[in-house]
Design a protein around this nucleic acid. Structure first.
Length: 119
DNA sequence: CCATTGACCGGCT
DNA sequence: TAGCCGGCCAATG
């Protein structure tokens, strides 16, 4: 799988994260068909065209914390957007047990074959 | 080709 | 709970 295909799958997966829920990097990678690709998700997110309008704020670390520096503009934007969606952020942390995206099988299969074939 | 980097992760102290 | 640490893996230098 080449770089563009990987990034495309990652972006598509992130688009699927429902409002009011969050997903961690490793989870996005796995659903995108890239096991152990957490760092690739970070890369794809870093290089995503702004025009895609990805809900990037719904992607956080497995620890429940933002990947950004607490003093950064990104951190505040992420926190504010999550709160606006109804996701509780207590002491900079999200309760993963409660808000983690739990996609059902049919949610993963509605996509076109291009997203689940291998090679 | 080898070394470093990074919006990461999970186990262990 | 908070770090530290080794593992991870594509992109960069």
């Amino acid at each position: 799988m080449d770089r563009d295909t990987r990034m495309r799958r990652i972006w598509e997966t992130i688009q699927d994260i429902p409002r009011g829920t969050v997903a961690n990097y490793g989870q996005v990678a796995e659903i995108a068909g890239i096991p152990r690709g957490a760092r690739q998700v970070a890369y794809a997110l870093r290089h995503a065209p702004a025009g895609l309008g990805l809900p990037w704020h719904r992607v956080i670390r497995s620890s429940g914390k933002s990947a950004f520096d607490p003093n950064s503009r990104h951190f505040r934007m992420q926190r504010d957007r999550l709160i606006e969606e109804g996701v509780a952020v207590i002491n900079g942390k999200v309760d993963m047990k409660k808000y983690r995206w739990e996609p059902q099988l049919d949610e993963l299969l509605w996509k076109p074959s291009s997203s689940w074939d291998e090679s």
